[in-house]
């Protein structure tokens, strides 16, 4: 045995590490989409926003030398995309799902168009906090090397949960999401509130993208997102529009994704495509197990086009 070889213990450690590393962008996109959908809109275009965030964040970090400036610009770029989606969908009869798909195309197109010159340069990475200092094992230290954005994402999930449940802005979002008529009766302007919620959701997705390019995997290229943005939007349904559940969904998805490489590294080498499909199979399994025909859309905002 070679030094540092911890055998099968490597698998759970890798899954925990993978859950922390891979889940962050999914968490941010899911949280952003949760807010948007709770207000009664669906923005399917966050995949494009994620890629735009990744590109603008990386480009800014290259140009300014500051990774945090990159995160900020990614959030702004995401907010602009969300704002456009929100404003366009405020026009009567415009389909929010369709606009989302068109914006996915536009977002990735713009990101690839302007991103070409930034594939080669190396940008500074976001810092990580070594929460594994107590262990001698390099595997544990690496797994618990936690990026600040992950912790911010966790905090935001709890904050959003509290905001939606116990604050006036949260109540407004929920009312608008459940019934436009009720909202108007209360003197609220649903279109305006949904636009703001979509813009904030876009900013979240932009930060998720910055995590991809500035921390993990930590570089800008055109294969940076393999559909995480689209998947994260779908996971909101899985999490039943609950910010706390978004954390679990993102961790499940990220951890299951680490299973494939980890199993190969301990010698389980057959059928790796099937292990790589673990996140999708597990999510589908949980979805089927936790759904029931009678409460098909429990927790769904009433105004959401996808669940009507």
């Amino acid at each position: 045995m070679t030094t540092g070889d911890i055998g099968l213990w490597g698998v759970p450690i890798a899954v925990i590490g993978g859950a922390i590393r891979v889940s962050t962008p999914i968490l941010f996109v899911s949280l952003g989409e949760t807010l948007t959908e709770r207000s009664g809109r669906i923005n399917l275009g966050l995949e494009g926003t994620l890629v735009i965030g990744a590109m603008t964040g990386y480009a800014t970090a290259v140009l300014t030398g500051s990774a945090w400036a990159g995160v900020l610009v990614a959030a702004l770029a995401g907010a602009v995309f969300g704002l456009v989606h929100g404003l366009v969908c405020s026009l009567p009869k415009v389909n929010d799902i369709a606009i989302g798909i068109a914006m996915m195309l536009l977002g990735t197109g713009l990101a690839f168009y302007f991103g070409k010159p930034f594939i080669q340069p190396v940008a500074p990475n976001l810092p990580a906090i070594p929460l594994g200092w107590w262990s001698d094992l390099p595997q544990v230290q690496a797994a618990l090397n936690v990026n600040v954005l992950f912790l911010i994402g966790l905090a935001l999930a709890f904050a959003m949960h509290w905001m939606l449940r116990a604050t006036r802005p949260g109540l407004i979002v929920r009312v608008v999401g459940d019934s436009s008529d009720a909202a108007r009766a209360m003197g609220l302007k649903p279109a305006q509130i949904r636009t703001i919620a979509t813009a904030i959701g876009g900013a979240f997705a932009g930060v998720g993208g910055a995590y991809l390019s500035l921390y993990y995997p930590g570089s800008w290229n055109e294969a940076i997102s393999s559909g995480q943005g689209l998947m994260a939007v779908a996971l909101v349904i899985f999490a039943r529009w609950n910010p706390i559940a978004c954390i679990w969904a993102a961790l499940l998805f990220g951890g299951a994704g680490a299973l494939g490489p980890a199993l190969q590294s301990v010698g389980v080498t057959q059928g790796y495509y099937l292990f790589y499909a673990a996140p999708y199979v597990l999510t589908l399994g949980v979805l089927i197990a936790t759904s029931s025909p009678s409460r098909a859309m429990a927790g769904a905002p009433g105004e959401l086009s996808i669940t009507k």
């Binding site: 490597g10 890798a14 590393r21 797994a143 570089s219 980890a262 590294s265």
Partner: peptide, 13 residues
């Protein structure tokens, strides 16, 4: 990208 990064981490682990 993400899978390549995960694979690299698994090798380092």
């Amino acid at each position: 990208a993400v899978k390549e990064a995960e694979a690299t981490n698994a090798l380092a682990d």
